[in-house]
């Protein structure tokens, strides 16, 4: 196998976990197979692994139960936060286009905290639950961007993506974390719930946004039960 061919096989083998990649590439080097057969072998192993993952319910719930709906709701929250920011700090450019309510500065800060907490938690839970299949959840998140229509003509379209860096950060932490710290999860759950109740009482929380609370309480329950990542996929 030439250097270019072997380089391609090594590149594709990055789909596998580190130990498995080590063993498989070693086996292929020993067998001295041609490039095409080696590529088929590596891809075959990868897709068999994916098949095993998707027989479990967790990647399905992570993708369709958390990633997809959270993405849609968080796009709305991002637009709402941006609209409130423009109204409070740049009123001459503000054109009411988003039903953001009449939040003052305190509720604005509350919304920022909630956006951060919701985004990070959703990313964390999706990655923690479906490590091997997190890329599917990421692809599912593209659908709201493509099909959802938000009336934000006077706002930059990029404002819809405000939650994305936070969700990606949460996902990175979810991929690297073995156990959730109970004190942190408890404090987060209490803080998020308290702020959501405050926002709700002030008429500054959409009903559907209550759906964003469940990953927060899942983390709390997982931390209390000391669920290790081995019980996730």
């Amino acid at each position: 196998m030439g250097a270019t061919g072997w380089g391609l096989v090594e590149l594709v083998a990055r789909l596998l976990s580190p130990n498995e990649r080590e063993a498989v590439l070693g086996d292929l080097a020993e067998a001295n197979q041609n490039v095409l057969r080696s590529l088929f072998d590596v891809l075959g192993l990868y897709f068999r692994r994916q098949g095993v993952l998707w027989r479990d319910w967790r990647p399905w719930l992570a993708g369709f139960g958390v990633a997809l709906p959270s993405c849609y709701l968080l796009m709305g929250v991002s637009a709402s936060v941006t609209s409130t920011y423009v109204r409070l700090f740049d009123p001459k450019d503000y054109i009411p286009c988003w039903p953001t309510g009449r939040e003052g500065f305190i509720l604005f800060l509350c919304h920022i905290f909630l956006l951060i907490a919701w985004s990070w938690t959703a990313g964390f839970v999706v990655a923690w639950w479906s490590r091997g299949a997190v890329w599917v959840s990421a692809v599912l998140c593209l659908f709201p961007f493509c099909v959802a229509h938000f009336p934000i003509e006077s706002l930059p379209r990029a404002c819809l993506y405000l939650f994305l860096p936070l969700a990606i950060l949460g996902a990175r932490h979810g991929l690297r974390t073995m156990r959730v710290d109970a004190a942190f999860a408890s404090a987060l759950a209490v803080a998020v719930t308290a702020l959501m109740i405050l926002a709700w009482k002030c008429g500054a929380l959409w009903t559907l946004n209550w759906a964003l609370i469940w990953p927060v309480w899942y983390l709390f329950a997982a931390a209390r039960r000391r669920v290790p990542v081995a019980q996730t996929i």
């Binding site: 498995e20 086996d27 292929l28 590596v42 897709f47 095993v52």
Partner: peptide, 25 residues
């Protein structure tokens, strides 16, 4: 007994190719 050796042994005995995917899963 390790991956490649087992694979070779199975291929010799059966006369059929043993894919790495089937082996490791």
């Amino acid at each position: 007994a390790y991956g490649a050796a087992i694979r070779e042994e199975i291929q010799s005995a059966t006369g059929h190719r043993c894919s790495i995917g089937a082996l490791y899963t």
